[in-house]
Amino acid sequence: MVLLKQLPDLVEELEPSPDGTDIDREFIKFILNEFDDQALEEALVTKESSGAEVIVVALDEPEVDQVLYTALAKGADRAVKLTGVPAGTWVPTHLRAAILAPFVRELAPDLVLTGVQSAEDLDGQLASLLGGYLDLPHAAVVVGLEVKDSIARVVQELGSGRSVEEQITLPAVLGIQAASQAPRYAPISKIRQAMQAGGLEELEAPAPVDSADIAIAQVRIRRLYAPEKSTHAEMLTGDPGEVATRIAEILRSKGLVKA
């Protein structure tokens, strides 16, 4: 099972909403969290090597149908959209995990994959929280995965080039940093085919697990603001030739150009 999440496209200008406690979500573009795309790829690779069935699951979020159909076009077997969830606002990760936990428990997949983090995980990351609610082993920053029988061999990056290899008895929840190959591309024609075939299952989201209420209620965003830029680069302008000349001069003045 792969859990997918939509995120505001960070290339766009993000403005705080009028009350300053969320971003203005009305006119921005949403895209799939890039790490979730890695998680999907790793699931598809695992399917190819071990014959697993891949189910993609997302909450009903802006432009999510496209993402789920793309996953079907890439080779996912089932796509589920959970409806009746908060719409048009930031969904705390505790709430997301609390909604997904009963659903995961009911379907009881061997392995749950999701992106290691998202840019709006203000209250924590999904893999660890979901692992907590379900009392399942979990691991973040996963860059290697091999599944055999009911055992996963997992490689986690520890930072500064170190990594750890471990063995986890399934079921488990993994936060994927990078799949073993670059995420595949689904041609538009295949996505269209998937859309025409339908096959997107819409299910009512289960009631969140109770204990989530406590933690969600206690984290309150008081203010959202753009960071004050204490320093900023001196911008070099002009045509590419002029800018290149200026950069070469700067490097020469530091004695960094050998010739």
């Binding site: 290691v116 924590g124 990351q125 907590g132 979990h138 973040a140 520890l158 204990s211 406590i214 933690a215």
Partner: peptide
């Protein structure tokens, strides 16, 4: 860090306590 990402969510649920990341 990896250890922090692994720990924080699970601890938040088990302790329990709210969590602020980043």
């Amino acid at each position: 860090s990896t250890m922090g990402l692994d720990l924080a969510g699970g601890l938040s649920v088990a302790w329990p306590a709210p969590l602020v990341s980043y």
